[in-house]
Design a protein around this nucleic acid. Structure first.
Length: 265
DNA sequence: CTAAAATCCTGGTGGC
DNA sequence: TGCCACCAGGATTTTA
């Protein structure tokens, strides 16, 4: 379940191997994961050079030396690696991109939820995303503005990518815990102090995740070990690290939600 | 308007 | 040991 820190970690790992490389071919074995016909994707990408690799929310953004932009969303189980073409193709690589140096950018996605986009205007895909929580201009005031007038529960709003980009189920739970806020709280009940603590909590949870190179769940993300630092996520029944109260698990908005009933109010 | 449910997928898990 | 029902989870779409 790559969220912002996992995607950021992958982006950083891909920059060196990909920037300046020219795409010489593409192969699509699961057409539903690509939002245009496979032959058109191949025709548009062949000969294009990847100029920069970036991130917006949970999307990877590949800028090219042509009029189109390549976007990839990893969804649940996606991973991206650059490997020599002669190395064995791992299982569940449904799409790959041949590069001019004999390597391949391989999109591995066990559950096939991930998506590849090739668009002229990135805003057609990224336009509805909310602000980047780690950007300098993301202030407590900005967060307050995002939540203003919202009636939903705190956790559900944190997962809404049009309100805030990049937070998923793990970091939403971790952020609520760090802020000492009950994930079931109506957003309208949050005061200025609550918003300030939430703002700080979100940024610290995400930064901490990046510092540990993301979380490795299902053994998908080698290197990252943030899963060993979760404070509430997946710790159902285990003692709260602050007060010892057993962590509770509930379902909120159809998502498993973990919190300390004593520390989070 | 919000909110819940269905949808897409497969590996892993728990029950028997 | 084997079989199978069930579940997670991001984002979109549908239904209430």
């Amino acid at each position: 379940m790559p969220e912002l820190p996992e995607v950021e970690t992958i982006v950083r790992a891909l920059r060196g191997p990909l920037q300046g490389r020219r795409i010489t071919g593409t192969t699509v074995r699961w057409p539903r994961s690509v939002c245009l016909p496979a032959d058109e994707l191949n025709r548009q990408l062949c000969g294009r050079t990847i100029t920069t690799v970036g991130r917006r929310g949970k999307y990877l953004v590949f800028h090219l030396d042509g009029p189109r932009t390549l976007l990839i969303h990893l969804k649940m189980s996606g991973n991206l690696r650059v490997e020599p073409a002669h190395e064995d193709m791992p299982a569940h690589v449904h799409t790959w991109f041949d590069l001019d140096n004999g390597c391949q950018l391989r999109f591995q996605d066990t559950r096939k939820f991930g998506r590849v986009y090739l668009v002229e205007d990135p805003a057609t895909v990224l336009g509805r995303l909310g602000p980047e929580p780690l950007a300098d201009d993301f202030t407590p005031d900005r967060l307050a503005h995002c939540l203003a007038g919202r009636t939903g529960r705190l956790k559900s709003l944190l997962l809404d990518q049009s309100i805030l980009a990049g937070v998923g189920n793990i970091y939403a739970d971790e952020s609520c815990f760090r802020a000492g806020l009950d994930p079931r709280r109506p957003a309208s009940s949050l005061g200025t102090d609550d918003i300030a603590r939430l703002h700080d909590a979100i940024r610290k949870a995400l930064s901490n995740g990046i510092m540990h190179q993301g979380a490795s769940i299902d053994g998908v993300y080698r290197g990252g070990e943030f899963q060993n630092h979760f404070r509430v996520y997946g710790r159902t029944g285990e003692p709260c690290l602050s007060c010892g109260t057993p962590i509770e698990r509930i379902v909120l908005g159809g998502r498993s939600t973990h919190f300390c009933p004593h520390c989070q109010r």
